[in-house]
Structure formats: structure tokens, C-alpha cells
Simulated assay, not measured.
Amino acid sequence: METILTLNNLTKKFGSLTAVNNLSFTIKKGNVYGILGPNGSGKSTTLGMVLNVVNKTGGDFHWFGGNNSTHEALKQVGAIIEHPNFYPYMTAAQNLALVCKIKGVRPEKISEKLEVVGLLDRKDIKFRTFSLGMKQRLAIASALLNDPEILILDEPTNGLDPQGIHQIREIIRQIAATGTTILLASHLLDEVEKVCSHVVIIRKGEKLYSGRVDEMNASHGFFELRSSEPEKLQTVLAEHLSIGKINFQDGLITAFLDEPLDAEVLNSYLFSKGIVLSYLVKRKESLEEQFLQLTNQISN
């Protein structure tokens, strides 16, 4: 599979602050990637560096195998990293016609891209009358005019109402279905889970996870347990080789698994140690629980 973008130990410092720290990952053609992390985690800075609008401090990145200069490679990239900025008293079509002249694109592309984002019937409406969601959709149409190999979106649904969020996500899915690679930055787990095939999770500029979304929560799960002897139960659980982190709250013990373990086997083991359980349930970690643990936002 063709490589679109490669980051090797990419680093950005603003004085004593390290915004991005030795970040490495690879984007392959035809997938939808999400850079996921809390606000201030370095997502926008990372996109700024690969788009040559933020100077890197260290490391490197290569577009399309590094065969062309970054300037040439970016001609194959469509990006929206700021709020849509069009002329308010010009219509949607007039604004896109101006972009066509700047990019050297045939004006015939205007209607095609407006149809993709569901704005073809609004092409003669002035931009100043557009809702925030419509403005964002017009910006996506603008970024698609040159038929880019990859579309980059920074927080594409930020500030939108539920209907606007749904529309943008559907457009992203439709664009991805045509084979266009997409890279989006978001602090919304729900967004990444619904539209992305791959995810890079970062916190304070450092990569915590990189891989397929459906493999992120491929953990071994956890047990919820209760006993009349909770302290003894915690001690015995901590000695078991299959069990990792253990939480205790409101009488409920949560034991996370480092490797597969059946409830029946665990129950027998605890009984042999003199512990009788009043409650035992095995659960699968949700993607949200995994994300919260990775970003250290879940209580220990």
C-alpha cells in the first residue's frame, strides 16, 4: 500500500514548552486517520508542521515517499486548518472560482465539489448568509477542488450543532469511499470512532497509541468483584500473574487483565485462597475507557 506521509521523531518546541515530542507514524493511502487527543495535546501543531506553516524543531517528515519537495507534494494535498475564510459578499460559486484561479484548477470542478458537500443548490447564495455548518462544507469543497490525494481537516466539527456534525461526518465517509486518504485532528473520541479506520492518540505532544481503531480496544477486559473481605481480595488478586491494575471504589473492585482469564478459573482460584465472592462479572473495556486510561484521565 502506497505511503502518503511519514513522520520520523517530529518535534516542535516553543521556548521551554515542547508541543510535539519525537512523534512518529505513517499514513497509508486509502485510509481515514484520526489524530486524537485532549485540547493542547499538539494535534494542530503537528498538522501545521507537515503543511509547512509551522517550522519544526527536530525530526523530519516526508510526503509520498520523499520523491518530491514538500512544496511540490503539497499540491496534492487539500487542507482546512483554520476557520473558513471566504469573501462574505461573494456567492459560494464565486468564492470557489477564485480558489480555482489560485490553484490553477478548471472551473468545471466547482459544481462537482459543491455537489459532494451538498451545496450545489446554494451555489448562487452569498457566503455571509451561510450557517457555520454550511461554511465548513464550502471549505471542504474548496479543499477538494484540486482532487487531492489526501484531505487534512483540523477539528472539522468544532462548534457545529448535532445536525451539522452529522452532515460533516457523512461527507467525510463519502469522500473516503472514493479512495481519498483523510487525516483529521479531533479531541472527540466519538468522532474518531465513527469515521476513522486508524488512530494516533497523543497527549502533551507524545504518541500513546498508533494503529487501527478496531484494535485499540482489543484488550483482555476486566473483572468486577465484591467480597466481604475486600482488602484480602485485593492482595490475592495482585499476586495473580494474569491481572494488572486494580481499582477499589465504593466496595467494588475492578481488576484489569494483562492476558486472557476465564471467570470460572478466577473464581476457583480465589476460592482456593479462602475468598468467597458475592459478585463477579467479566466485562470488555469500551474504547472510551481505553482512551481515558491512555490519557491518564481515569482515576487510579
Rank of each mutant, 00 (worst) to 15 (best):
residue 91 T to I: 03
residue 262 D to A: 13
residue 184 L to S: 08
residue 20 V to I: 04
residue 126 K to S: 11
residue 30 G to C: 06
residue 70 T to C: 12
residue 232 K to M: 13
residue 99 V to S: 13
residue 196 C to H: 03
residue 175 I to W: 01
residue 146 N to Y: 05
residue 290 Q to W: 08
residue 137 R to M: 07
residue 294 L to P: 03
residue 269 Y to T: 14
residue 46 T to M: 07
residue 83 H to D: 15
residue 10 L to T: 01
residue 204 K to T: 06
residue 136 Q to A: 00
residue 242 S to H: 09
residue 74 L to Q: 08
residue 268 S to N: 14
residue 58 G to L: 03
residue 248 F to D: 12
residue 298 I to G: 14
residue 235 T to E: 14
residue 225 L to P: 03
residue 240 H to D: 13
residue 263 A to R: 01
residue 229 E to K: 12
residue 15 G to P: 05
residue 95 N to V: 02
residue 180 T to R: 07
residue 244 G to S: 04
residue 298 I to F: 14
residue 174 Q to V: 08
residue 36 L to M: 07
residue 266 L to C: 05
residue 270 L to C: 07
residue 52 N to A: 12
residue 54 V to M: 02
residue 241 L to A: 15
residue 133 G to E: 06
residue 224 E to N: 10
residue 70 T to F: 08
residue 265 V to Y: 11
residue 257 L to Q: 01
residue 39 N to L: 06
residue 260 P to K: 00
residue 96 L to C: 00
residue 146 N to V: 06
residue 224 E to I: 12
residue 215 E to D: 14
residue 291 F to V: 00
residue 186 S to A: 09
residue 28 K to G: 04
residue 147 D to H: 13
residue 146 N to M: 12
residue 15 G to T: 01
residue 279 Y to M: 05
residue 232 K to D: 10
residue 149 E to M: 14
residue 114 L to S: 01
residue 113 K to W: 08
residue 86 F to C: 03
residue 210 S to F: 09
residue 149 E to K: 15
residue 192 V to A: 11
residue 108 E to F: 09
residue 295 T to M: 00
residue 52 N to M: 10
residue 128 R to C: 08
residue 180 T to C: 13
residue 70 T to Y: 10
residue 42 G to E: 02
residue 258 D to G: 14
residue 54 V to P: 04
residue 273 K to A: 03
residue 191 E to P: 02
residue 123 K to N: 08
residue 30 G to V: 05
residue 70 T to M: 09
residue 240 H to K: 09
residue 293 Q to T: 13
residue 47 L to G: 05
residue 142 S to D: 11
residue 117 V to G: 06
residue 115 E to P: 10
residue 236 V to T: 12
residue 88 P to Y: 02
residue 282 K to F: 00
residue 13 K to G: 04
residue 251 G to N: 06
residue 72 E to K: 14
residue 57 T to Q: 07
residue 210 S to V: 07
residue 88 P to A: 06
residue 293 Q to R: 15
residue 96 L to Q: 00
residue 12 K to Q: 05
residue 1 M to I: 11
residue 235 T to L: 11
residue 188 L to G: 04
residue 229 E to A: 14
residue 212 R to C: 14
residue 134 M to C: 07
residue 55 N to S: 15
residue 122 R to P: 13
residue 162 P to D: 03
residue 267 N to T: 11
residue 221 G to T: 02
residue 238 A to G: 04
residue 102 I to P: 02
residue 148 P to C: 07
residue 115 E to S: 13
residue 212 R to G: 15
residue 194 K to I: 05
residue 172 I to C: 05
residue 208 L to K: 03
